[in-house]
């Protein structure tokens, strides 16, 4: 397939994944702000959401107020925010349009319809009462497109590039969410064991749609180390770092098989994957959770760039 087309399906999937994760962060921010009595700590929650999506700086250049409505409208639909959910879904759809010939009708139509629905929903400012519906629609778009890919696409290079995009983005997002909140998992605050910690931990898990799964696996008891292990090293959880890397490796293996040769990204992934499988949560905490996550984020970027270069995404 064309390098430009591979780039297109890869980014289409990345944008949809990112839009979905942003929706989830807004959801969590909204719930958390509701549980906070005073305005100042509500603002702090929204700031933290902006930090996680990497948009705090841009936001501060345009707004000085951190009210929920202001922040989520910025994140969802503000016109000159290139990182808004609407812009991302539009990017995903534009990429899908560029590579339309590589997609099944079902994948294209789902993406196009998702965009049309969201454009309509986001054509007016979102109020608190309609936020839930908007967020559901965003998540549903991602889910439907993934379903259409799963159900209708040939298991070939196009499918593999799309999946690689999804999991590169997801690995990056999970690591960033964890990194912004890593301090709530550190021992210095953990021993306090206050109810505030419990809320913080629950929030963190919710941000990656892992609260139910975690409770289920741990019979409801929460501890910071367990949460970190779950989000980084649990191979069953579809948003953990190790799960994402395993998926990227398997889709990259698919490419190597189809093309009959490996590229430099394969070796990078093999090394990174082996390290993820060997390391324990104790070792991660010993070396510093924040440092570990920073290194992980850089490594993911490096792998993404290697894939783009190896497969000639651009000239």
């Amino acid at each position: 397939m064309l390098g430009r087309a591979a780039n297109g399906v890869y980014w289409m999937s990345r944008y949809l994944e990112r839009a979905e994760n942003t929706a989830r962060l807004i959801d969590v921010g909204f719930h958390l702000a509701l549980t906070r009595g005073n305005r100042q700590s509500q603002d702090e929650e929204w700031k933290s959401v902006l930090t996680t999506t990497g948009q705090l700086e841009d936001y501060c250049q345009k707004h000085s107020d951190f009210s929920g409505t202001q922040v989520f409208n910025y994140l969802l639909r503000e016109k000159d925010n290139p990182g808004s959910v609407l812009a991302m879904v539009e990017n995903a759809r534009t990429n899908a349009r560029v590579v339309r010939t590589s997609l099944t009708n079902s994948v294209w139509e789902t993406t196009n319809e998702g965009w049309m629905n969201l454009r309509e929903l986001l054509s007016r400012p979102v109020r608190e009462t309609s936020l839930g519906e908007v967020l559901t629609q965003i998540r549903r778009t991602g889910t439907l497109v993934r379903g259409a890919l799963e159900g209708t696409m040939l298991r070939n290079e196009v499918f593999n590039f799309s999946r690689i995009g999804t999991f590169i983005e997801r690995a990056d997002n999970t690591a960033r969410i964890l990194d912004v909140k890593y301090y709530v998992l550190l021992p210095s605050t953990a021993w306090v064991g206050s109810s505030l910690d419990n809320v913080q931990w629950d929030t963190l898990l919710r941000s990656v749609a892992g609260n139910r799964a975690y409770s289920w696996l741990n019979a409801g008891s929460m501890d910071p180390r367990g949460i970190a292990r779950f989000l980084i090293l649990d191979g069953q959880f579809p948003r953990s770092l190790i799960f994402c890397y395993d998926k990227i490796r398997s889709n990259m293996a698919g490419l190597a098989k189809e093309y009959g040769r490996e590229v430099s990204a394969h070796q990078l992934l093999r090394d990174a994957g082996a390290k993820l499988h060997q390391i324990t949560i104790e070792e991660i905490f010993e070396g510093g959770l924040h440092e570990y996550l920073q290194a992980f984020i850089s490594k993911t970027i490096e792998i993404g760039s290697a894939i783009a270069a190896d497969y000639r995404f651009s000239e």
């Binding site: 397939m1 064309l2 390098g3 430009r4 591979a6 339309r100 010939t101 290079e157 590039f161 490419l255 093309y259 497969y311 000639r312 000239e315």
Partner: peptide
């Protein structure tokens, strides 16, 4: 479906940049 940026002339042929 190609665009100009996908193509270049190599060894007397028009070639497209594939993965």
């Amino acid at each position: 479906l190609v665009e100009g940026s996908d193509l270049r002339v190599m060894d007397g042929r028009v070639c497209m940049r594939t993965t």
